[in-house]
Amino acid sequence: MAEIKEKICDYLFNVSDSSALNLAKNIGLTKARDINAVLIDMERQGDVYRQGTTPPIWHLTDK
């Protein structure tokens, strides 16, 4: 899980924002549900936040 978090942070640092599906595909996974639990956990920790569009767009925080 730590490896996936690191990949998410690296990708969002370079791209600035992404949907869960696009993010999953760009870090080597196939479906948004493969990454949603990790994104929600990271959101609780304050590492990422989502804009409430459908589907949500994920961003890194300034943390």
Results as ranks from 00 to 15, higher is better:
residue 34 D to S: 06
residue 44 R to K: 13
residue 48 V to I: 11
residue 27 I to R: 03
residue 54 T to D: 15
residue 4 I to S: 08
residue 43 E to T: 00
residue 23 L to V: 08
residue 27 I to W: 01
residue 52 G to N: 12
residue 27 I to H: 03
residue 10 D to V: 01
residue 24 A to S: 06
residue 20 A to M: 01
residue 38 V to K: 06
residue 10 D to G: 04
residue 13 F to N: 15
residue 26 N to F: 07
residue 36 N to D: 14
residue 56 P to C: 04
residue 55 P to C: 07
residue 55 P to T: 09
residue 60 L to I: 03
residue 17 D to M: 04
residue 19 S to P: 10
residue 49 Y to C: 14
residue 56 P to H: 00
residue 51 Q to L: 11
residue 34 D to M: 07
residue 15 V to S: 11
residue 5 K to R: 11
residue 32 A to P: 10
residue 21 L to M: 13
residue 61 T to G: 06
residue 4 I to W: 02
residue 16 S to Q: 11
residue 40 I to T: 12
residue 10 D to P: 01
residue 39 L to N: 06
residue 39 L to W: 00
residue 55 P to D: 13
residue 51 Q to K: 13
residue 27 I to P: 05
residue 37 A to K: 14
residue 4 I to R: 06
residue 35 I to Q: 07
residue 54 T to H: 13
residue 21 L to V: 12
residue 62 D to R: 10
residue 28 G to R: 01
residue 46 G to E: 02
residue 51 Q to F: 02
residue 31 K to Y: 14
residue 33 R to E: 15
residue 61 T to H: 07
residue 16 S to T: 06
residue 27 I to S: 05
residue 15 V to H: 15
residue 32 A to R: 05
residue 37 A to S: 12
residue 7 K to F: 04
residue 28 G to M: 01
residue 37 A to Y: 05
residue 40 I to W: 06
residue 31 K to W: 02
residue 23 L to D: 08
residue 38 V to A: 15
residue 39 L to D: 11
residue 57 I to A: 08
residue 55 P to K: 04
residue 2 A to N: 13
residue 25 K to E: 11
residue 59 H to V: 08
residue 23 L to F: 00
residue 36 N to L: 08
residue 27 I to K: 08
residue 34 D to K: 04
residue 35 I to A: 08
residue 42 M to E: 09
residue 11 Y to I: 10
residue 4 I to E: 08
residue 16 S to I: 04
residue 52 G to F: 00
residue 29 L to D: 13
residue 15 V to F: 13
residue 45 Q to G: 01
residue 17 D to G: 15
residue 47 D to P: 01
residue 37 A to T: 10
residue 44 R to D: 10
residue 7 K to L: 06
residue 59 H to W: 00
residue 50 R to I: 01
residue 54 T to W: 04
residue 52 G to L: 01
residue 15 V to C: 07
residue 3 E to R: 07
residue 50 R to M: 03
residue 21 L to F: 10
residue 25 K to N: 09
residue 8 I to F: 04
residue 26 N to Y: 11
residue 21 L to A: 15
residue 9 C to M: 13
residue 5 K to T: 03
residue 46 G to K: 05
residue 7 K to D: 04
residue 39 L to H: 05
residue 8 I to A: 03
residue 50 R to P: 03
residue 38 V to M: 04
residue 35 I to F: 02
residue 11 Y to E: 12
residue 48 V to G: 02
residue 54 T to S: 14
residue 30 T to V: 10
residue 36 N to W: 10
residue 7 K to C: 00
residue 23 L to Q: 00
residue 50 R to F: 03
residue 31 K to T: 13
residue 56 P to F: 00
residue 14 N to T: 14
residue 25 K to V: 08
residue 5 K to P: 05
residue 26 N to S: 11
residue 10 D to M: 05
residue 39 L to R: 07
residue 41 D to T: 05
residue 3 E to F: 03
residue 59 H to Y: 05
residue 1 M to L: 08
residue 30 T to S: 14
residue 20 A to K: 03
residue 38 V to T: 11
residue 6 E to C: 02
residue 12 L to P: 09
residue 60 L to V: 04
residue 46 G to N: 01
residue 21 L to D: 15
residue 33 R to D: 15
residue 44 R to M: 09
residue 27 I to D: 08
